[in-house]
């Protein structure tokens, strides 16, 4: 079979080469966009923080890719205005279909600008508690203490009550204590103060607070509030409770527990 060289040339010129050209241009466009986005991220992350820098660099990258696609379409001789006109109608349809995604996207931008938290913070939102792993365009990822990953839509973060446990470097540790009625309240408060003063992890300032809260059903109620380095919160709580128990045992101060008296009615 004789191959028609002229038909092959036409095939190559009209279809194959343009196809490879488009692919090459797209690959080049994606590569350049990624490279420039990475440069932008490196430049902005020190000034604005990792989360803001990531949001800006990703937006920049997708805009660049869009520009490459538009230039490709124009280069192919397609009328952009006709496409934009059609896109106007398609835009309305897509908008209705993707309003949740758009809401997440806009909420994400507001979160990045407002900064109620940053990467590495521990937050609690809608019952989910964990460390912020990353802030993406549509959602934020939390890593839980037991190493699970929770994906929280940005819209939920924007409209829910959010607790940031690591916003400030110090935290107040509140410990409720109950002491039996046969104890001396003034003596108990003196002992609490001595235990706190002897623990170097409890801050001198702000001053520890010791309150006699009142009388419970079975005991006298006290509140011990000390300020600590938030990175040492649990360790200080443990050491403080241990010190308190040892001191109470030494001073023979009872920590009461609920007792139930059972009466046999047979002999009534």
């Amino acid at each position: 079979m004789k191959m028609d060289i002229s038909k092959l040339n036409v095939l190559l010129a009209d279809y194959v080469l343009p196809f490879f050209g488009i692919c090459a241009w797209l690959i080049f466009g994606v590569w350049v966009s990624s490279f420039l986005a990475r440069l932008l991220y490196n430049g902005l992350s020190h000034r604005l923080g990792a989360d803001k820098a990531r949001a800006f660099s990703k937006t920049f990258k997708y805009l660049l890719i869009l520009l490459f696609i538009v230039s490709l379409i124009r280069g192919a001789g397609v009328d952009i205005t006709a496409i934009l006109g059609a896109a106007g109608v398609a835009g309305v349809a897509i908008g209705f279909a993707s309003q949740t995604s758009l809401s997440n996207l806009i909420s994400g931008l507001f979160l990045v600008l407002e900064r109620p938290f940053k990467i590495g913070d521990r937050i609690e939102v809608d019952g989910s508690d964990g460390y912020v792993h990353s802030i993406e365009l549509l959602s934020t990822y939390l890593r839980t203490f037991d190493n699970r990953m929770i994906r929280v839509p940005n819209e939920m973060l924007a409209k829910s009550k959010l607790i940031n446990y690591t916003r400030y470097p110090i935290r107040r540790l509140d410990i409720d204590l109950s002491v039996s009625f046969n104890g001396d309240a003034a003596r108990v408060m003196r002992i609490l103060r001595e235990v706190v003063v002897a623990n170097p992890s409890c801050f001198n300032e702000p001053e520890p607070l010791i309150f006699f809260k009142g009388f419970g059903d079975y005991s006298m109620q006290f509140l011990l509030a000390v300020w600590v380095d938030r990175t040492e919160l649990m360790a200080t709580r443990t050491s403080l409770l241990k010190d308190l128990k040892e001191r109470f045992d030494r001073e023979r101060i009872d920590l009461p527990y609920q007792r139930m008296l059972v009466k046999d009615d047979k002999n009534a």
Partner: peptide
């Protein structure tokens, strides 16, 4: 030495 905080708890310190 015991630790302490210099400043307001919710501000730079």
């Amino acid at each position: 030495l015991s630790k302490t905080w210099f400043g307001h708890p919710s501000e730079d310190g």
